[in-house]
Design a binder for these strands. Structure first.
Lengths: 228, 228
DNA sequence: CAAATAGTGTCTCTGAGACAGTATGAG
DNA sequence: CTCATACTGTCTCAGAGACACTATTTG
């Protein structure tokens, strides 16, 4: 194995949630150069005996203080331009995580402050390294996946109403959906959601049925994103 | 940068084409251990100053003896289990390439023999390393992408008939499509294909119009894969 | 002529979009 | 009661699937 170019390998996380009407991403403020003081995606080096998904889960739990199974985690892509990190040749495997808002704790374990930032209020180039591009790819992946998977529910608490789920779609896509057609679509697509049997209480208006995530992994037919 | 675990980074290619009625993959027979004599995906180490897409293009042209722009190339995923390569810690970035059958030359530049193998006739575990899994992921990606992109045409020569395109779908998906509905769908979806203005000659039956790839990158609405 | 392949027309059914109307809670 | 929100029904239109029919070539 000697004689081959040595690389450093990292994982970086695009952790998304829906909170206060915004699609938001978990960012950390860098405490050391390069890009000191800049916002960056949470991440870190992969251990020499560590599998890539394990490294992603480890970073996710370290940064959110949360056990993993409460969300969705998938590989997003790998970024390795020769000079993306001025310290040396670093290839990073980026991961996309979708979490409910409950996952809010955000302990800054690395003595760096961490916070949720609305993705729409970030400008390209504002993030360290090539993290702006990685974030853009992650957001686009998430938007696309809401169309043909039931992953929107991973942004919701374990039990949720149809209106909460609709709010996720409207927030992530930035477009308005007809509540009546949405209700028909969600409850009519097999495996999308399953009724819990109880309803909300003490809210304004008629109580709403509570649902859990269904067993489907793919939506047939898909939820269509409005033209604009 | 010192003090961080050193990795080797490679690129591996899932190069697919449609030939003789089979979806086939380009494989090389390994001439050295480990897995000596086994079939493996073509690939190699990334240079210390080389970008990842450049490394993929370089390997593709080396293995096929073909200039790149004649097909489609996209990142598939990254695989890095700690002991996937017995020689050391190797992380590989896998790429998916779709080429027309014309790309047949296949020069074994590394003194290794290379050949096209029908993917259906490969058994899991027959390939070196974790290449069986990588190939399965690539094939599934290709099958899915035919649904919502016009990429089926990258399996065809620059000018092709509707029947040739339909044959690509039927071969990749392994299912039968109604020729009349297919024709209506292909010619009716804006940007999918564009008529060249000429027709085939000397074939049996009525001559068929020739088409080129259209300008669309996404199919709206998608081509639906039959249930089975 | 027949055979073969290309291409068109038509019918039906599913599902999306638009939107009126009903149900059930809080104050 | 009013207001707010949940939920249902109905109409229309686009597009998929099934399949009969016409068109244009070779032998």
């Amino acid at each position: 194995m000697t004689g081959y170019p040595p690389f450093a390998v990292t994982v970086d996380l695009v952790v998304l949630t829906v909170r206060a009407g915004d699609l938001s991403v978990l960012l950390v403020r860098r405490g050391i150069p390069p890009y000191e003081g800049c916002w960056a995606l949470p991440g870190g080096f992969v251990g020499i005996d560590e599998d890539l998904p394990d490294a992603a889960v480890r970073e996710l739990t370290e940064e959110t203080g949360l056990a993993e199974p409460a969300g969705h985690l998938e590989q997003l892509g790998t970024y390795g331009k020769p000079h993306r990190d001025p310290r040396g040749r670093v290839v990073t495997v980026a991961w996309l995580a979708l979490l409910p808002d409950l996952a809010a704790p955000v302990a800054g374990t690395d003595a760096a402050s961490a916070d949720w930032l609305p993705v729409d209020r970030l400008t390209p180039g504002q993030l360290a390294f090539d993290h702006g591009r990685i974030l853009a790819d992650g957001v686009e992946r998430a938007r696309a996946k809401l169309e043909y998977t039931p992953l929107a529910a991973t942004f919701c608490p374990p039990e949720f109403t149809v209106a909460q789920l609709r709010d996720v779609y409207e927030t992530v896509w930035g477009s308005h959906l007809d509540p009546r057609n949405f209700h028909r679509k969600v409850t009519g697509t097999p495996g999308f959601v399953e009724p819990v049997g109880r309803s909300t209480e003490g809210e304004r208006g008629r109580p709403a049925q509570l649902f859990r995530r269904g067993s489907a992994t793919l939506l047939h037919p898909p939820m269509l994103r409005p033209a604009r």
